[in-house]
Design a binder for these strands. Structure first.
Length: 875
RNA sequence: GCCCGGGUGGCGGAAUCGGUAGACGCACGGGACUUAAAAUCCCGGGCCGUAAGGCGUGCGGGUUCGAGUCCCGCCCCGGGCACCA
């Protein structure tokens, strides 16, 4: 056996990528004779670099797509670009480059990275959301939503990110900070467009139950976000004023414990009450102070409760008692009715407030086995209990009293059951350029006029000065702004805000079914064939944002009769994020790239210094992101070791649902594996017997232990790899392939001469393993698998070949290791034939070497025999 | 505070049902080949101990013949929600 040609991964990868493309291997069309499988990755924002996080996502997708195709499915595996968005605009500001040009460059660069990795996308279906052919349909959907009353414009307090110079949806203002740049969000009062997602709150919540193949935590996050609560709504009349205060409570069982009523500072009644008060200046100042607190301050944990008495009294609807009306910062206008009934004995927040301002505390529920002292309480009693001081409801269990009081109030006509959601309408106006223009015209005479469908798309004007300052860039373009009313022909102005980019990604999975349709967003035949997406994979960061919006869109489209599925994504898998060290230099006030720092060891500690200023940098562990300069792209690994090695490595790094730290140690291992495989197959090409299948049938009864052993390993591996791919266990699937290879290699090293009968059988058995190894390897490392496949004399690509079947007879164990324990401690091991009787096992165990010493002279109390596993002798 | 996820060798990580803890890989040590090195191949290893043996899956209890796995009580790391009435 002479030396074989080395594994030239560059040549192999180039060759096969070209062939796949020349053969149009991944092009897919509707084919009703085969079951369909729609695999989708979350498409990327074209920021210019594909990093390891993306790569992990897309390689997982490629493994599944190729595997499903080999199982006989008609697989749709598309890719595109979420190409509108702020970073393009920021790049334009920084580099003076048009967002379109910048985006196109990024797309080109990312496309070359996709190609480098050899992913099986049907590129004929590519989508770019910034193309008019795509965003035209955003506008079309917007008009449809508008017709149905699901899009509306209103002045509202909105989240404003001063750094991005634009508004944000609630979902984008994470705990008071901008989701993109982490700047504290401000509140502004603006006239903005909203989509009425709250109209779908109940269905978005209920249908989560249909999603049995979604991760529980994503469903929990959506449930929390929608935040449904059931309770009772009722009014307090004001004493001596012709006004009412509507409140909502989930704890109607505590209604007899109300000792005051609180309004949010923004509540419309607040100015009226202040007006009537002799202390109006004082009160006005107090409320102003509360109003000026930022969202960040008001939602932070340690904020001091503050309030003021409004010199007004409300009448309790059941007891007719007079209770004081307060205004306080801990009541939110956005939730419920913006006013609450306060029950300090049974609500911690109300108690804190009552103690601070010396308000009454009245106990109306007590624990079954104790008394409560209203004057001494430090914690509100919030658990269920026995009703007291609650008129005819006293003595009941509070859980039952909830219903009884609600019934009573409904009968008396003073209140009604009500459901509140935390979810708020989706704000989609953005004061930026690089997005979809709203198809809306404002006419002095006609008001808001939707652009007629035939006039779509409203094109984004190409020449715009983008400064990042001073509101919507489109408002600076007179040719765009000034138009005529499509209804009355008078001079009119266009809406100059653009749509949030989450609108684009809310339906792109439908467009992939029919991406070139010029007459409709998609044809129903194509969508009915492909939808729903069978497997969706992406990062957990979209658990609420994108995944909620896409579900919402799908439901509206369902109601419009455009799609037949209530939910877009049958199975969801959220992959873990890839972390990498980041270096922040305090002195320079900026992040540093890995090559801009040097590290030293000082005893136990590692010191990392900035190359620019020499001071020590802060070493963090962060999700890869451009802003932290800690991105690692697949390029280096692909350049040094090849795409197949890179693919294996990113999968081998750990379970895909868990986060992982990027550490390239270990890449070598994958590279070595592929090299060893390359060598073994090429060295043994002459030994390969193409019709091993027929030969094997004849030889089966005569195979010896070693031959049966290799076949057993092979077929057990087929079973394991199949199960592992189905269960996203890519790391263990690769380990199984390596184990099989190790056995193949040692088998090959002791093969007998060709001309002997045993030697021939050796070759037949090895041929089976070598061939099926390529089939199993293809989804993971498709280039090398296809190359070796060809060298075995096979036509085409393994992709066109069927996945392997397990030969159950071959996979069956013949003998097994039985562990012998004494008092639960392992003392010996026995190798016995499968199916040995319990009695035989017992006597073998009692007589084996390791046991005797530990049993000698002791009484045997019990012997536990677990078939196929172990014998435990208890003394 | 509530709800998830995680904690296993020097490192990444394996281990359907409670039944051999540490698969596979990295790094490391030894050997073979080589004038030498690289590459490759073979061998080795949880820790303590000369050994017999003992101890080992974040900590403390429990159930069991037997616990990484089940139960109870904690600790640490990461994430989500949080003044939502």
């Amino acid at each position: 056996m002479g030396s074989v040609e080395r594994y030239d991964f560059k040549a192999v990868e180039r060759k096969w990528q070209k062939r796949w493309s020349d053969w149009n291997l991944f092009k897919v069309v509707e084919d009703r004779s085969r079951p369909k499988f729609y695999y989708l990755d979350m498409f990327p924002y074209p920021s210019g670099e594909l990093h390891m996080g993306h790569m992990r996502n897309y390689i997982i997708g490629d493994v599944i797509s190729r595997y499903k195709h080999m199982l006989g499915y008609n697989v749709l595996h598309p890719m595109g670009y979420d190409a509108f968005g702020l970073p393009a605009e920021n790049a334009a500001i920084q580099h003076g480059m048009h967002p379109k040009v910048w985006t196109e460059q990024c797309i080109q660069r990312m496309r070359s990275q996709f190609d480098m990795l050899g992913i099986s996308f049907d590129w004929g279906r590519q989508i770019r959301t910034c193309s008019p052919e795509y965003y035209k349909w955003n506008q079309w959907f917007f008009l449809k939503f508008y017709e149905r009353g699901l899009a509306y414009r209103r002045p509202a307090p909105v989240n404003w990110c001063p750094a991005c110079e634009t508004t944000l949806a609630d979902e984008e203002a994470e705990r008071g900070y901008c989701w993109r740049c982490s700047t504290p969000v401000e509140k502004r009062w603006l006239e903005q467009w909203f989509l009425k997602i709250t109209a779908y709150a109940e269905r978005l919540l209920e249908d989560l139950d249909l999603l049995e193949h979604w991760p529980e935590r994503v469903k929990v996050m959506q449930r929390n976000w929608i935040g449904k609560s059931e309770g009772v709504e009722f009014d307090f009349e004001l004493d001596g004023i012709m006004e009412k205060i509507k409140v909502f409570t989930t704890r109607i069982d505590t209604v007899y414990g109300v000792t005051f009523v609180v309004l949010a500072p923004e509540h419309p009644l607040v100015p009226k009450l202040i007006e009537r008060s002799p202390r109006r200046f004082e009160l006005y100042a107090a409320v102003q102070r509360m109003l000026s607190e930022s969202i960040e301050e008001r939602s932070s944990e340690e904020v001091e409760k503050e309030g003021a008495f409004l010199d007004a009294y409300a009448i309790h609807p059941l007891t007719k008692e007079r209770v004081p009306v307060w205004v306080a910062n801990y009541v939110l206008m956005e939730y419920g009715t913006g006013a609450i009934m306060a029950v300090p004995a049974h609500d911690q927040r109300d108690l804190e407030f009552a103690r601070k301002y010396g308000l009454d505390v009245r106990v109306v529920i007590k624990p079954p086995d104790a008394e409560l002292d209203a004057d001494q309480m430090e914690r509100a009693y919030v658990e269920p209990g026995i009703m007291v001081n609650s008129a005819q409801f006293s003595g009941m269990f509070s859980e039952q009293a909830k219903d009884a009081i609600a019934d009573y109030m409904e009968q008396m006509g003073v209140g009604k059951r009500s459901i509140q959601y935390r979810l708020r309408d989706w704000l989609i106006s953005r004061q930026r350029y690089w997005g979809t223009p709203f198809p809306i015209i404002y006419c002095d005479k006609c008001g808001i006029v939707p652009v007629p469908e035939e006039q779509l798309p409203v094109l984004l004007p190409p020449d715009v000065k983008i400064t990042g300052k001073g509101g919507s860039p489109l408002s600076q373009v007179p040719e765009f702004v000034n138009t005529t009313c499509t209804r009355c022909g008078a001079m009119a102005k266009r809406e100059t805000d653009t749509m949030a980019t989450f609108v684009d990604s809310s339906w792109y999975f439908l467009r992939f079914c029919d991406p070139h349709n010029n007459d409709a967003p998609f044809g129903s035949d194509a969508v009915d064939y492909w939808m729903p997406v069978d497997q969706y994979v992406g990062g957990i960061e979209h658990a609420v944002l994108h995944l909620l919006y896409a579900r919402f869109f799908t439901k509206v489209l369902y109601d419009m009769g455009l799609v037949k599925t209530k939910e877009p994504f049958t199975r969801l898998f959220t992959q873990g994020m890839i972390y990498h060290e980041s270096y922040y230099c305090r002195r320079c006030r900026s992040y540093r790239r890995p090559e801009e720092v040097r590290s030293k060891r000082a005893g136990e500690r590692r010191i990392v210094k900035c190359n620019v200023c020499g001071s020590e940098v802060e070493v963090g562990m962060d999700k890869m992101s451009k802003s932290k300069l800690n991105i690692v792209t697949p390029d280096y690994v692909c350049e040094q070791y090849g795409a197949d090695t890179a693919r294996l490595f990113i999968l081998f790094i750990g379970p895909p649902e868990l986060d992982a730290e990027w550490n390239p140690q270990g890449v070598e291992g994958m590279y070595r594996f592929l090299n060893r495989l390359w060598r073994l197959v090429n060295e043994r090409l002459d030994d390969y017997i193409p019709d091993w299948r027929e030969k094997l049938n004849e030889l089966k009864p005569t195979l010896d232990d070693a031959q049966r052993g290799l076949r057993r390993k092979l077929h057990q591996t087929i079973r394991k790899v199949t199960d592992d791919i189905e269960g996203f266990g890519f790391n263990t699937a690769i380990a199984a392939l390596m184990e099989l290879f190790n056995e193949m290699q040692s088998f090959a090293s002791s093969m007998r001469p060709k001309d002997e009968v045993e030697g021939f059988a050796d070759r037949v058995v090895l041929s089976e393993a070598v061939e099926l190894m390529q089939v199993m390897l293809h989804p993971f490392a498709p280039h090398i698998a296809d190359e070796l496949w060809e060298r075995l004399g096979k036509p085409g690509s393994v992709y066109q070949h069927r996945w392997c079947d397990v030969d159950e007879d071959a996979a069956r164990e013949e003998e097994q290791v039985i562990v012998v324990q004494v008092n639960g401690k392992v003392r010996d091991r026995l190798i016995v034939p499968v199916g040995i009787s319990e009695d035989e096992l017992r006597s073998l165990a009692l007589n084996c070497k390791g046991v005797k010493a530990h049993v000698a002279g002791k009484e045997i109390k019990r012997i536990i025999v677990v078939p196929n596993r172990l014998v435990n002798i208890v003394v």
